[in-house]
């Protein structure tokens, strides 16, 4: 029994429609993608869908109240909400440097959470 799954690629704004055919959980064909990123996406999406998580963390003593952060790589889709629970507890002290590791391991994925923006330390008046 061949199962057909229609996907929309999220790798770029083109948003190609991709058809993935699987047989007993194994991919037998991928079509409709216009580049190799699409093929990679379809492979993952059909077996283990992943996403980059972007959010913010609270900043102490900063010129901004929060700092943008992101998972340094994709994490399984079902880990997005649990990861948000973990991140909710995090506070970082300014200065925050773009690229700096905020959390070593997001929800046991092995993927770190890194700063996606700089926040300077507030000067005392």
């Amino acid at each position: 029994m061949i199962e057909r799954k229609e996907l929309t690629c999220i790798k770029c704004p083109r948003g190609c429609g991709i058809l993935v055919e699987t047989e007993q959980g194994r991919i037998v064909s991928i079509s409709g993608n216009q580049c190799k990123n699409g093929k990679e996406y379809a492979k993952k999406e059909a077996t283990n869908p992943t996403r980059v998580l972007t959010t913010t963390v609270k900043v102490l003593f900063g010129t901004e109240k929060v700092a943008a952060v992101k998972s340094k790589g994709e994490i399984p889709k079902e880990k997005l909400l649990p990861a948000m629970e973990q991140i909710k507890e995090v506070q970082v002290e300014a200065p925050v440097i773009l690229g700096e590791i905020i959390l070593e391991d997001l929800c046991g994925t092995g993927i770190p959470l890194v700063a996606a923006a700089c926040v300077a330390r507030k000067r005392l008046p």
Partner: peptide
């Protein structure tokens, strides 16, 4: 860009996917 913390920026310009603040930086 500072408030667009989602990804999807820079695919054409820098050939990698960045967040808004990273693209601005």
């Amino acid at each position: 860009l500072n408030q667009c913390i989602h990804t999807g920026f820079g695919l054409h310009t820098f050939k990698e996917e960045l967040t808004g603040p990273e693209y601005a930086a």
